[in-house]
Simulated assay, not measured.
Amino acid sequence: MNTTIVSAMAAADAFLCVLVVIAACDYLRRVRPIDQPMLSVAFYLVAIGAFGSFLGAMQSQLVSPFGVMVHAGIVLYAWARRGHVFKVA
């Protein structure tokens, strides 16, 4: 692949990873783990995995286009469900 394309994908993946970590941490800030333990564990795993992927992208590891698509999907899901997360009970 062209080095410019690989660099652009690495930058996009790093940016998406940061957005995923922010979304997961914001969700975890608003939810009590006692009320929804499985969902909380899932978001902890997503946040940890995205942070690890961000570190890998910063160390110039090869970025998979499918990894970028996964991170973009998670960001779109978080954006679409933001009304549900921020709903005041």
Score class of each variant (00 low, 15 high):
P65T: 03
V75G: 00
P65D: 10
H84Q: 09
S53Y: 10
I48D: 03
V20P: 04
D35S: 05
G83A: 08
D26Q: 03
V88T: 04
V70Q: 06
A42K: 09
L39V: 07
Y77R: 05
F54V: 05
A89N: 00
V88L: 07
A57C: 09
V46M: 11
N2S: 12
T3K: 10
S40C: 10
S7K: 15
R81A: 07
R29M: 08
C17F: 04
M9N: 13
D13T: 13
A80C: 07
R81N: 11
A12M: 15
W79R: 13
G49N: 03
A80I: 12
H84G: 04
V41Y: 13
L45E: 13
V41Q: 14
P37S: 02
L19Y: 09
V68G: 00
V21Q: 03
I5F: 12
G56E: 12
I5D: 15
D35A: 04
R30L: 03
F66I: 11
Q61I: 04
G56A: 09
I22C: 02
V68Y: 05
L19F: 06
W79H: 13
V88G: 01
R30E: 02
S53H: 14
V6S: 14
C25N: 08
V88M: 04
L55A: 07
A42F: 10
P33T: 00
P33R: 00
A50E: 07
I34D: 09
I22F: 04
M69A: 09
I74M: 06
I22V: 08
C25V: 11
S53I: 06
Q59G: 13
D26I: 01
I5Q: 14
D26H: 00
V18D: 08
V46C: 08
M58P: 11
K87N: 04
A11P: 15
F66C: 10
R82D: 00
I74K: 01
A72R: 00
R81D: 11
G52Q: 08
V41C: 09
F51K: 02
L28D: 00
M69Y: 10
Q61K: 11
I34T: 07
Q61N: 07
V20D: 05
L16S: 01
V70E: 06
A14F: 12
V70R: 02
A23Q: 03
A57K: 07
S40Y: 11
G83T: 03
P65L: 11
V88C: 04
A57T: 02
I74F: 11
L28S: 00
R30H: 04
M38I: 12
C17G: 09
G56D: 11
A89M: 01
V88Q: 02
A12K: 09
D26L: 06
Q36W: 15
A89H: 02
K87I: 09
A80Q: 15
T4R: 15
S64Q: 08
R32A: 05
V70M: 07
A14K: 11
Y44A: 07
F51S: 06
R82Q: 02
L76H: 02
L62E: 12
A47D: 02
F43C: 01
F43V: 01
N2M: 11
R32G: 05
I34P: 09
V31H: 05
S60I: 08
A42R: 05
A78L: 02
P33F: 01
D26N: 03
R81E: 11
S64H: 12
I5T: 14
Q61F: 15
